[in-house]
C-alpha cells in the first residue's frame, strides 16, 4: 500500500500541496484526477523522493523510501528518461545493469506487444513510440507499484488504445498502479479508484464501481458535483 499522509508543500509562496492524503492499494488502479494546475505530478515526485515535502509522510508498504524501494516502486514520468543517443537495446542494458527487478523476458514481450525495433535510437523514435518505450522501461521492472504521469496524453488514438490494453493485460498483473490524468473519459472503465485533486487538495476519494452502484453516477458526474459546487 502507498500511503500519502497529510503532505504539504510550498513552491515559493504558492502552496501546491495543502495536506494531501490518500492511499493506493496493490492490485488496484488508482487514478489521480485534476482538471487544472500542478499537484498531481508533484505528488508522484514526492512519493519517489524527487522533490522534498514540507510536512507529512509518505509510506510504501509501511516504510519510508530508501534505495531498496526503487526495486519495489517505479515512476514513469510523462517524458522518456533515457539518453537520446541510446538505442532501445542500450537502454535495456542500462536497466539490467542497475535493477535486480529488471525482467528481460517481459521487456522482450513488451517490444513485441508494442511492435518496436530494439536497434532504434531513442532520438529517432516517433512521439508515440517514445511514449511506448518510456512505458516499457517501467513495465518491464518487476515492481509492486507503478506510478504513471499522464500516460494517455499527447499521443495518437491508436497508441492510446494500445496503452489502455496494457492496463487490462497480465503486464499489470496484480500490481498497484497510480496514474494521473486530466481526461477521464477514455479510462473510466479501467480504474478502481479515483482521487479528485484540485489546487493541491484532495476533494474526494472513491471507488468508481461503488459510486456507480450506490449512487448511479459516473466519474464525470462526481467530478461535476465536486468541482462545480
Amino acid at each position: 500500500m502507498i500511503e500519502v499522509k497529510n503532505v504539504k508543500k510550498k513552491y515559493g509562496r504558492k502552496q501546491v500541496l495543502k495536506g494531501v492524503s490518500f492511499t493506493a492499494e496493490k492490485g488496484e488502479i488508482t487514478c489521480l484526477i485534476g482538471i487544472n494546475g500542478v499537484g498531481k505530478t508533484t505528488i508522484m515526485k514526492a512519493i519517489m523522493a524527487l522533490t522534498p515535502i514540507d510536512s507529512g509522510e509518505i509510506l510504501i508498504d509501511g516504510e519510508k523510501i530508501r534505495k531498496e524501494s526503487f526495486e519495489k516502486i517505479t515512476f514513469i514520468p510523462d517524458a522518456i528518461t533515457m539518453l537520446p543517443q541510446m538505442k532501445i537495446v542500450d537502454a535495456f542494458t542500462f536497466m539490467a545493469d542497475f535493477y535486480k527487478s529488471w525482467n528481460p523476458e517481459r521487456a522482450k514481450e513488451l517490444l513485441q506487444f508494442f511492435k518496436l525495433d530494439a536497434s532504434e535510437r531513442i532520438s529517432d523514435l516517433s512521439k508515440g513510440n517514445t511514449a511506448k518505450v518510456n512505458l516499457l522501461l517501467g513495465l518491464a521492472l518487476d515492481v509492486d507499484y507503478l506510478l504513471m504521469d499522464e500516460p494517455f496524453s499527447g499521443i495518437d488514438i491508436f497508441t492510446r488504445e494500445q496503452i489502455a490494453d496494457v492496463f487490462t493485460s497480465h503486464l499489470i498483473e496484480d500490481r498497484g498502479v497510480v496514474i494521473t490524468t486530466h481526461e477521464i473519459n477514455d479510462i473510466e472503465h479501467l480504474i478502481d479508484r479515483a482521487v479528485l485533486i484540485d489546487n493541491g487538495e484532495v476533494l474526494k476519494e472513491f471507488s468508481v464501481e461503488e459510486v456507480r452502484e450506490n449512487e448511479g453516477k459516473s466519474v464525470v458526474d462526481v467530478m461535476r458535483e465536486v468541482y462545480q459546487g
Binding site: M48, L50, F70, F75, P77, F98, I122, S123
Partner: peptide, 14 residues
C-alpha cells in the same frame, strides 16, 4: 538535456 535523465539517475536502486 533532452530527456531529463536525472529522473532515471535518482530512481536507481543505489
Amino acid at each position: 538535456g533532452k530527456n531529463t535523465f536525472i529522473y532515471r539517475l535518482l530512481m536507481l536502486p543505489v
